Measured scan of single mutants.
Amino acid sequence: KVILLEDVKGLGKKGDVVEVKDGYARNFLIPQGLAVEATKGNLKEL
């Protein structure tokens, strides 16, 4: 699961917690600054 930092077409809006494949999160969303891993600490910051 990841928390979206920006609106991502076809996935969700900023602040949404979405389930995506590990590779998509690690190789695209997180490096592009579009999402962060949905850890307990990150979820509390919402």
Rank of each mutant, 00 (worst) to 15 (best):
E45S: 03
L43P: 05
V20K: 00
A25S: 06
Q32W: 12
I3W: 08
G12K: 00
A25Q: 03
L11F: 07
G15C: 06
K13W: 12
V20W: 01
E45N: 07
K13F: 10
K13I: 10
N27W: 13
L5R: 07
K13G: 08
V20P: 03
V2E: 00
V36I: 14
A25H: 05
N42A: 08
L34F: 11
K44W: 13
L5M: 10
A25N: 05
L43E: 07
V17H: 08
L4V: 00
K1L: 13
E19P: 05
F28D: 05
K44G: 10
D22V: 10
K44T: 15
L4F: 02
L11V: 12
N42L: 04
K40I: 15
I30M: 07
K9C: 06
V2F: 11
N27L: 13
L29Q: 00
V17P: 02
Q32M: 10
F28T: 11
L11W: 05
L5E: 02
L34M: 12
G33M: 08
E19H: 10
V17Y: 08
K21C: 06
E6V: 14
L11D: 00
E37R: 07
Y24P: 03
V18A: 04
N27M: 10
A35Q: 01
A25E: 04
P31Y: 15
V20T: 05
V17E: 07
L46C: 04
D22N: 12
E45W: 07
K44M: 15
L43C: 11
E45V: 05
A38R: 03
A38P: 06
K13D: 06
G23E: 15
G41K: 10
F28S: 05
F28P: 02
L11I: 11
N42V: 04
P31T: 15
L11Y: 07
R26K: 15
Y24G: 03
L4P: 00
K14M: 07
N42K: 02
K1M: 13
N42C: 05
Q32I: 08
R26F: 14
V8M: 11
L5Y: 03
L43K: 04
K1F: 12
N42I: 04
D16M: 13
G12M: 00
G12Q: 00
A25W: 09
V8A: 02
L34I: 13
Q32A: 11
G33D: 03
R26I: 13
K21H: 14
P31C: 08
K13N: 12
A35C: 03
N42Q: 09
G12S: 01
G23S: 09
Y24A: 04
V36R: 06
A38Y: 10
Q32Y: 10
V36Q: 09
V18N: 01
G15V: 00
E6I: 14
D16Q: 13
V8Y: 06
V20S: 02
K14W: 03
E19Q: 08
K40F: 15
E6T: 15
L34T: 03
V36W: 06
E45A: 04
L5H: 03
D7V: 05
L46S: 10
F28Q: 07
T39Q: 08
G41C: 13
A35F: 02
L5A: 03
N27Q: 11
R26P: 06
I3V: 11
N27V: 09
G10I: 04
I3N: 01
L43A: 03
G15S: 05
G10F: 10
A35N: 01
V2Q: 01
K1P: 09
Y24L: 06
K44R: 05
D7K: 07
K13Y: 12
V20A: 03
D22C: 09
V18E: 01
E19A: 08
K14L: 06
K1H: 10
F28N: 09
E19N: 09
D22E: 11
V20C: 13
N27A: 12
K1W: 05
L46V: 08
V20H: 01
Q32N: 13
K44P: 14
L29G: 01
G23M: 13
T39E: 12
